[in-house]
């Protein structure tokens, strides 16, 4: 008979570490999807997810079961991703000269006629990935959660541990930072 999540957690807390495996199997897809939003290389993604699970195991006794385990775990995952971003800030230093030809074509199409540049194009996906990589860690986190995942300010405050006013300030700055990066790309290419 399959054990419930609460039973598995209770068993882990009693010292049965094997009971942790079904939890890892169940939630790893979500944790991997979250890690892929912040890291690109497979090795980095696996490192992040591994760290999330080890932290989850170590901190399991702090899980109060007031909210679902998944929420607690995702909060841990997002915070681990944020730590990863802060630890890899140097990677943001590269220039925009490395923009690929399809990305340049997409931008040219957008300049000529904004409506003709499709959002579902691979080039647009690559370009937004590049722009997000140039953002500061806090700006990237806010843009990701607020704009891309469409979460509320209150939710972001809960996930990150920041206050609501701080999230608002960081969101405002993040939008400005993103616009600055976009203007740098377009200045490099079209002015």
């Amino acid at each position: 008979m399959e054990r419930s999540e609460a039973e598995l957690i209770a068993a882990v807390l009693k010292g049965d570490s094997a009971s942790f495996e079904p939890l890892v199997a169940k939630y790893s897809p979500r944790v991997f999807a979250t890690a892929r939003r912040y890291a690109r290389r497979d090795s980095e993604i696996e490192d992040i997810v591994q760290e999330v699970w080890l932290k989850a195991f170590d901190k399991l006794k702090t899980f109060r079961a007031e909210a679902p385990f998944e929420h607690w775990l995702m909060r841990l995952a997002v915070r681990t991703c944020y730590d990863f971003l802060r630890g890899h800030q140097r990677n943001r230093e590269s220039s925009f000269s490395e923009i690929s030809e399809p990305e340049e074509d997409w931008l040219e199409r957008f300049v000529a006629d904004p409506g003709s540049a499709a959002e579902d194009a691979d080039a647009a996906r690559l370009l937004i990935g590049r722009v997000l990589e140039k953002l500061s860690p806090s700006a990237r986190l806010v843009i990701q959660l607020l704009e891309i995942e469409d979460r509320s300010v209150k939710e972001i405050a809960e996930i990150t541990g920041w206050s609501v006013p701080l999230v608002k300030v960081r969101a405002f700055r993040a939008r400005g930072e993103m616009r600055k990066i976009l203007s740098r790309i377009t200045q490099d290419k079209y002015l």
């Binding site: 897809p29 979500r30 991997f32 999807a33 979250t34 892929r36 939003r37 957008f110 904004p114 540049a117 959002e119 579902d120 194009a121 647009a124 996906r125 370009l127 937004i128 990935g129 722009v131 997000l132 843009i143 704009e147 891309i148 469409d150 939008r175 993103m178 616009r179 976009l182 203007s183 377009t186």
Partner: peptide, 19 residues
């Protein structure tokens, strides 16, 4: 730039990471 920003964010929304 605001429109470009919106378009790129829409592109990110259309491409959720794989799990």
């Amino acid at each position: 730039l605001a429109e470009l920003q919106e378009k790129l964010i829409a592109a990110a929304r259309l491409n959720p990471p794989d799990d």
